[in-house]
Amino acid sequence: MIAILKYNAGNTTSVKNAVERLGYSCVVTDDPQVLQKAAKVIFPGVGEASTAMRYLKKRELDILIQSLKQPVLGICLGLQLLCKHSEENDTSCIGVFDAEVKRFPNELIVPHMGWNVLEVKESKLLKGISVVDDVYFVHSYYAEVSKDTKAICNYGIDFSAAMQKDNFYATQFHPEKSAGIGEQILKNFLEI
């Protein structure tokens, strides 16, 4: 069973639909026992960092996420919350990735919204993805490039488009909204 974390950030419908289209059954839940027993956990997110972290901390879901041993996939805000700290309302985050989340500079059009390409390093998650494959981004904050970065995207500056450390995988883009390429990436994750 694939578990999709239910919390106050987001639209879990699209992620659930995408997982189901690939033929996997999944459940949207905040039940710690279900999350711990799941084969894989997806940590999606659309929203604001401090509100999301407050919600997670209140229910000790931040500690639970950190303790998970199965493959975990953070998406968008999910990636940012797995970092150490976000500039968005000066928020202390979960800290799996040793990286800082910053706002795009004011001279850029923000949000970074639309299709952009990846410069992929060695990565199980992004297996088969090439430099010409576009994926869909929509975000105003980004994780800086760090040792856990597995793919870089450039929008005015280089930022982490995908990250991985141990069993924690994350994408800043939305695989569930990235047509066939996104489907391939989700399939890669589900097959890890």
């Binding site: 419908t13 699209s14 639909n17 995408a18 189901e20 289209r21 869909y136 929509v138 939305h174 569930e176 909204k177 990235s178 047509a179 066939g180 996104g182 489907e183």
Partner: peptide, 8 residues
């Protein structure tokens, strides 16, 4: 629509 398509 949401269950049928995979773009925004």
């Amino acid at each position: 629509i949401a269950s049928a398509i995979n773009i925004p």
